[in-house]
Nucleic acid binder design. Structure first.
Length: 268
DNA sequence: CATCAGGCGAGAC
DNA sequence: GTCTCGCCTGAT
């Protein structure tokens, strides 16, 4: 077991921020499946307990949870005159931008469109159980890996409809085929800059501006990506009628987007 | 019963 | 290029 102390790490907030659809709360613990691995973790105050070896933490989870970034420092960079953003960041100061699997994020965010988080999770669990490989963790927990491009490319549109994916079934079918055939080279994307990666992603069926930005942010860690959805649009209109000050936060506006999104959805 | 949820593609213009 | 419209499904 690895323990970490960090004032800007809140598992519940990360779980609720809606970037990771395979993290669930079970009792006083949280579990997640990522990169074919199963992980359990828990938290007490600023102390986080991660149930893995130091080596696994160093090679996988340290990067996954973006432990090399000081989020407190990012929050300090917020314009003190901006009351809304200051409150939003304070409210969600435990959120982190995870470094998740690219292929999984592509499919997950195609599913997310015009959809709610509860149903998104249900849909993803469905395709994992139907097309993903069943595995057992060292601790004996059974879980399903996220399906490979090959596995999803083998599913027909009708098969996908049966997973409750609705009209997105065609998008997923087309995108899985594109990736499986190699029409788009996923391995090349992490080496591209934001604009180039975004433009490649837009070639995929079912990936528009908003979904491409989510993939850039949550898989490629392009923190300048600022996904604009219905909630963010509403906040921008109400709080920033003359425009959001992107120029002040050019390299990390995507992190601020998460604070705004989480605040808008969860504040009382 | 209508509306909406972390939009997008297709077609019209 | 910009605009509109239809779309699976479940919750409210």
């Amino acid at each position: 077991m690895v323990t970490v102390n960090n004032g800007n790490f809140d598992i519940e907030q990360i779980c609720q921020s809606g970037q990771c659809f395979r993290m669930v709360k079970c009792g006083d613990k949280y579990s997640l499946v990522a990169f074919g691995r199963y992980l359990e973790l828990s938290q007490s105050g600023d102390d986080i307990s991660i149930e893995c070896t130091q080596e696994e933490f160093d090679t996988i989870w340290k990067s996954y949870f973006d432990m090399g970034t000081d989020y407190g420092n990012i929050i300090k960079g917020i314009d003190a005159q901006d009351n809304y953003l200051t409150q939003a960041a304070d409210f969600g100061k435990g959120i982190r931008i995870l470094r998740q699997d690219l292929w999984e994020m592509i499919i997950s965010f195609i599913i997310s469109q015009q959809n709610n988080i509860k149903r998104i999770r249900k849909c993803i669990n469905f395709i994992c159980e139907k097309y993903g490989e069943k595995r057992v963790s060292a601790g004996g927990a059974e879980y399903y890996d996220f399906p490979t491009p090959k596995a999803l490319a083998g599913a027909s549109v009708d098969d996908l409809y049966a997973c409750n994916l609705g009209y997105r079934s065609r998008y997923i079918h087309e995108t899985a085929l594109s990736v499986y055939r190699g029409d788009i080279d996923l391995e090349a994307l992490p080496n591209m800059d934001y604009a180039a990666a975004r433009s490649e992603l837009l070639k995929l069926c079912g990936v528009g501006a908003k979904v491409a930005d989510c993939i850039c942010l949550f898989a490629l860690h392009k923190t300048e990506a600022f996904p604009i959805d219905t909630h963010i649009n509403k906040v921008l209109a109400a709080q920033y009628p003359s425009g959001f000050p992107f120029e002040k936060y050019s390299n990390y506006s995507g992190i601020l987007q998460q604070y705004i999104f989480y605040y808008d959805l969860n504040k009382k």
